[in-house]
Nucleic acid binder design. Structure first.
Length: 420
RNA sequence: GUGAGUGUAGCUCAAUGGUAGAGCGCCGGACUGUGGCUCCGGAUGUUGCGGGUUCAAUCCCCGUCACUCACCCCA
């Protein structure tokens, strides 16, 4: 037996309904907000992520599935979608074609990490991106889309957290302020924090080591060090969230791990996910498009982890419901007609089951019962002779015999969600 | 990459240094034209894999793989 690869999973029939539900809501919400779906390849040139995601990030340094293909090119399985979306936007000059470059995509990403609750090596994201709009109104609308998406999935107790990480003008100054505030106490922090102090001081705020918290809590808050433009932008984003009536928490500790973020960052946190608790996260990236060789266009977007959303979905969501009808052949001579009947019902739009192997009527009915079907349609020799069928409702046990050409009419009345 | 815990039937789990059992599920029958309830019968395991200790290992030891959780990182 050859098993699946570590960190990958099979999504089985018992779970697929929940996935389809999440994907359907995602596509639906995006369409209502004016987003166009795009699908980009799962393989890209390694450079795209080195330049886009950032050479210094863990994702690029140690988590990419990268290889040399037969032509000698360095290829990688995409670890995130944003650089691909930027590439597609630039490569096809989409800003010429679209009134607004509002795009979304749904698909698998790959990172070589140790699997954990809500974290897999192949995982799936909804990726939402907007190019060319710097107005804080779009920040507000993107966040509103994210909140609406999570709400429409009926995910309870999700929390919206926002922050501004500033821009190229003010962030270096703030980093320096942080280092200065830490000063001689830096060695008191954990090893990771000391490493962060030299690579990206803001990320000290990500630290979860309990002993470090008092010192970190005392650090100067980013809000007080934003430049005027960034501060105004952030205030406007907050104003828009208030227009929409969304609850949010400002956390100066929300500093995201990717290099390209500027100004607005946000996350929606789930409640039952364990350590990997971000349902979705994103932010503004005003220099990424240019950095990847495109025109100087701002961008903003987020990625939502579908595994995590499926995990947080209420239990009853996405159950596909029982089939409409189970055709039971009573007697050896009725099988051919029973199969034609089942075929006709299927063509008429009803979810129809029928047994195989010419098993006894008893065992067919046991299967019908086990299949949780709503009703049996019994075709026996008596019915065959009179061109009728017997319909038995499983729940009540009520049954009646009616002419065969009235069956579809009967089912149309009694089945839900059928279009004829 | 680091740490901890766990791997026994399809599922949930027992068991003992002497080559494994229950419940649920599954299949059949009682009930040959009526499912669910009940009763009766039946099938299924290289005890994750490899090695070691031992007369003998599912149990003890080592390795490995997988899963789970946490670190790291992030969706």
């Amino acid at each position: 037996m050859i098993s699946g690869i570590r960190g990958t999973r099979d999504i089985l029939p018992s779970e697929i309904g929940r996935w389809q539900h999440v994907e359907r809501v995602a596509a639906d919400v995006c369409a209502r907000y004016g987003y166009c779906e795009v699908r980009t390849p799962v393989i890209e040139r390694e450079d795209l992520f080195a330049k886009g995601t950032g050479e210094s990030t863990d994702i690029v340094q140690k988590e990419m599935y990268a290889f040399t293909d037969k032509g000698g090119d360095r290829i990688t399985l995409r670890p995130e979608a944003t650089p691909s979306m930027v590439r597609a936007f630039v490569e096809h000059s989409l800003e010429q074609d679209l009134l607004f470059a509002k795009l979304y995509s749904l698909g698998p990403m790959f990172r070589y990490e140790r699997p954990q609750k809500g974290r897999y090596r192949q995982f799936h994201q909804l990726d939402v991106e907007v190019f060319g709009l710097a107005d804080p109104a779009i920040d507000g609308e993107v966040i509103d889309l994210a909140v609406t998406f999570v709400e429409e999935l009926d995910i309870a107790s999700a929390e919206l957290v926002i922050n501004s990480v500033g821009c190229g003008d003010c962030r270096p100054g703030y980093s320096a302020v942080l280092l200065e505030a830490l000063g001689s106490r830096l060695p008191e922090l954990c090893g990771d924090c000391q490493r962060r102090a030299s690579t990206n001081p803001l990320r000290i705020f990500d630290c979860k080591v309990p002993a470090d918290q008092p010192l970190i809590d005392g650090l100067p808050k980013s809000e007080n060090f934003l430049c005027e433009a960034c501060r105004d932008h952030f205030e406007e984003v907050k104003r828009h969230l208030e227009i929409y009536g969304h609850q949010y928490r400002v956390s100066h500790r929300l500093v995201r791990g990717l290099d390209y973020y500027t100004r607005t960052t946000f996350e929606i946190i789930g409640s039952s996910l364990g350590a990997q608790n971000a349902l979705l996260g994103g932010g503004r990236y005003d220099h990424l498009v240019k950095q990847l060789g495109g025109p100087d266009r701002p961008g903003i977007g987020f990625a939502a982890g579908l595994e995590r959303l499926v995990l947080e979905l209420p239990d009853e969501k996405g159950s596909s419901g029982p089939a409409d009808v189970f055709v039971v052949a009573f007697g050896q001579s009725t099988w051919s007609e029973a199969r034609v009947l089942a075929r006709d019902l299927r063509r008429a739009g009803f979810r129809t089951l029928i047994d195989y192997g010419e098993r006894s009527s008893k065992s067919q009915m046991k299967r019908a019962n086990r299949s949780n079907v709503q009703r049996m349609l019994i075709l026996g020799e008596d019915e065959l002779a009179s061109n009728k069928v017997t319909i038995k409702e499983m729940e009540t046990g009520h049954q009646e015999t009616l002419p065969r050409d009235e069956v579809i009419g009967y089912l149309a009345l009694h089945c839900q969600g059928v279009t004829l």
